[in-house]
């Protein structure tokens, strides 16, 4: 029987594979992965899971207010962050600000801000502002600012240049160009990104309280430290439902926008 021709040896592929395997072994060594220990203690783990599966419903009215606070935090964080992101994105778009140095410097700052994860921002703001919901709002605002600015300036840079040229030709000022040439093309994107950031913020705001930044996370931390896994289960379940509902609303609005 005729055979298919053999594939030529791909040296790059082999190098990548070997590097990956070596990296894996090295990582296992430094993180001290020990699966026998995991399986030996799997009983503890499943016990916690089982406790979480029978939620303490009596705790529900204690956590409704913190839950609302969490939602408020994410709304305010999203609002503040995206309001600042709006002019900032215009400032770093190369088709609006022609000065490469200005866009370069501000983009560099933006990229640095975007590398710091949400929870670390939270931890830093707890050190600066103190414990409370305001801290969470600030952390979420900074995160939203980074995310919306990035997505929005990328959207601005892909717009059709025609209207801008037309407006320049009739002698419009910079503000008029932005108002009549740029914004009509990108506003729906902006709102869609804000809603997207809001979805992410609702998710992360539920955790922020764990490090002292307000909201439901504080109660999560309390229940965990008191080994009340039935309450932890309830909190996880309730936040899950809230996230699902908000995702659905936000998704619907985004779809309606892009239509």
């Amino acid at each position: 029987m005729e055979q298919l021709p053999k594939k030529p040896l791909n040296l790059n592929k082999w190098i990548v594979t070997v590097v990956m395997i070596l990296g894996f072994i090295y990582s296992v060594m430094i993180t001290q992965l020990d699966f026998t220990q995991l399986f030996a203690n799997l009983g503890d783990f499943t016990e916690i899971l089982v406790k979480m599966c029978s939620p303490d419903w009596g705790y529900l009215d204690k956590i409704t207010n913190p839950l609302l606070e969490t939602i408020k935090m994410s709304i305010l964080g999203t609002l503040i962050g995206s309001v600042i992101a709006f002019p900032y994105a215009l400032l770093v778009s190369q088709n609006i600000v022609k000065n490469k140095i200005v866009t370069g410097v501000f983009r560099f700052i933006l990229n640095i801000i975007r590398t710091i994860p949400n929870l670390l921002l939270g931890a830093i703001f707890v050190a600066i502002i103190g414990i409370g919901a305001v801290t969470g709002v600030f952390a979420l605002a900074v995160f939203t600012f980074g995310m919306v600015s990035k997505l929005f300036y990328e959207a601005i840079e892909t717009i059709d240049e025609g209207p801008i040229e037309a407006l320049t030709a009739v002698g419009a000022s910079k503000m008029q160009i932005i108002r009549y040439g740029v914004l009509p093309q990108v506003m729906s994107y902006y709102i869609s990104y804000v809603l997207y950031a809001f979805e992410i913020n609702v998710r992360s705001s539920t955790i922020l309280g764990y490090i002292g930044a307000g909201g439901i996370g504080l109660f999560l931390e309390r229940s965990l430290s008191m080994y009340r896994y039935d309450r932890v289960g309830l909190i996880v379940l309730v936040t899950f439902i809230v996230i699902l509902v908000i995702d659905e609303i936000s998704n619907r609005s985004r779809e309606a926008l892009t239509k």
Partner: peptide, 10 residues
Amino acid sequence: SFTGIPFTGI
């Protein structure tokens, strides 16, 4: 959203 968030607690 602005109600109940204590902005004075800084």
